[in-house]
Simulated assay, not measured.
Amino acid sequence: MLIGVPKEIKVHEYRVGLTPAGVRELKAHGHEVIAQVSAGVGIGIADSAYTAAGASLVDTAAEIFARAEMVVKVKEPQAAECAMLREGQVLFTYLHLAPDPEQTKALVASGCVAIAYETVSDGRGGLPLLAPMSEVAGRMSIQAGAHAMEKAQGGNGVLLGGVPGVAPGDVVVIGGGVVGYNAARIAVGMGAKVTILDRSLPRLAWLDTAFDGRLTTLYSTVDALETAVTQADLVIGAVLVPGAAAPKLVTRAMLKEMKPGTVIVDVAIDQGGCFETSRATTHQNPTYVEEGIVHYCVANMPGGVARTSTFALTNATLPFVLALADKGYKRALLDDPNLREGLNVHLGQVTYKAVAEALGCEYQSTKDALKPWWAASDH
């Protein structure tokens, strides 16, 4: 198979879909790789490293999309990239379609086979290709929030860890999953007072044990959430419904009751955000103020630490890239029900139910999408 690796074009996005090590693995499996010139330069990977690994370099993304049988990226394709996709071409990347009807329409119109990192499962309720970036984003959320709390950045001027004789900052984490755990871990390490809310009692019990009582766990109700956020200096939105739009848990009315200068970091912004007042921002202009509250809503947070993020992500994606290349997408999807969960758009049809429900569009099950090949398989 011919695999293409374009340079990312989203604002301040420096990650890359394959590292030279990944290129070597694909070459060892008998595949060819073309990479766009400077695709990895933003994270310190020179073009020469790609050529040494066996990739061929091309000058433009247009050539990547025109030639490659499978395109491996990081962020969702931008409008110009969607326009270059062609029927039957495999796209393997983050998509986050539920809050993005325009991208969904463009992918449907292209006739491509779009497989989303964020909905590939592991059979145990986990999301193995989202988890590495959730770990990064959770940890980043605290350092980004702590910086935004500085008075010069519009915050309330509270030092997150406090000092002897002065109380530390009050951090509230909404959601106890991968993002929430990692955010809490950094916040506790910095000496903040931390409260984490979730609706899973087993998860709250696990968090209580994991942190050995160094944070407060709360069962999440509207009342508990409202009380917690009105006392907070920093609120982390760490809620995820796989593939679907994030629920708007913190309302504008709640914001009006919060302390002026409080910072909110909405890690769920890729899925539309879990604060009613959230709108996506970039690393170039990461914050805005609404209702006196500083909003940090960068939609590609891990891109801020692009080198670490690239290696963490590609460690997780490479086995799936190899499976898709070795077997072809049809056989790979039929053989692996967890990879099959990643299929979001197939030859003009939306094939992920939560996306179809969020956007009010027609849904085709993956079984029906793969029906011509399903009968010939053992499934």
Score class of each variant (00 low, 15 high):
L160E: 02
G243S: 13
L333Q: 03
G176K: 00
V235C: 03
P128C: 07
L107G: 06
S38Q: 10
A192P: 03
E150L: 15
Q89R: 14
A238S: 13
P372R: 13
I196V: 15
G155R: 09
T195S: 14
V321K: 01
E291A: 13
A245G: 06
F92S: 02
A224P: 04
W373V: 01
V41M: 12
G177E: 11
V108A: 04
R331E: 13
P242D: 01
A62H: 13
K7F: 04
E13K: 02
E291V: 06
A299V: 08
V294R: 13
V90P: 07
L207R: 08
A228I: 04
P302Y: 09
Y363H: 11
K151I: 08
H283E: 00
A114N: 08
T217F: 08
P286A: 12
S377E: 14
R199N: 12
V321I: 14
S48L: 07
Y296A: 07
T19E: 09
T277Q: 05
A312D: 07
T227R: 06
K371R: 15
L334K: 01
E257F: 04
T230Y: 00
G88L: 15
V166S: 12
S56A: 15
V41F: 10
E135Y: 02
L197A: 14
V239C: 07
I186L: 08
W206R: 12
D122V: 13
L215M: 14
G126L: 06
A354Q: 08
K7H: 09
L359S: 08
T351F: 11
V289H: 00
D223H: 09
I186Q: 00
V298G: 01
G303P: 10
T93I: 05
T317D: 02
Y219Q: 11
L91I: 09
V194R: 05
D233E: 09
A268E: 03
V265F: 01
F275I: 12
K256R: 14
G126F: 10
P302Q: 05
A316I: 06
G17Q: 03
M133F: 02
A109R: 15
N182K: 14
K27M: 12
V294D: 05
R199Q: 10
E276C: 09
V179I: 15
Q36S: 12
H29Q: 13
N344T: 09
L201V: 12
D378F: 13
P6I: 06
E150W: 08
A62Q: 15
L204V: 12
P319E: 13
P132F: 14
C82D: 04
P132C: 15
K75F: 04
T317L: 00
N344Y: 03
Q143F: 07
P20K: 12
A39Q: 03
V11H: 11
A325M: 12
R279D: 01
M254A: 02
V136G: 02
T217H: 06
A137S: 13
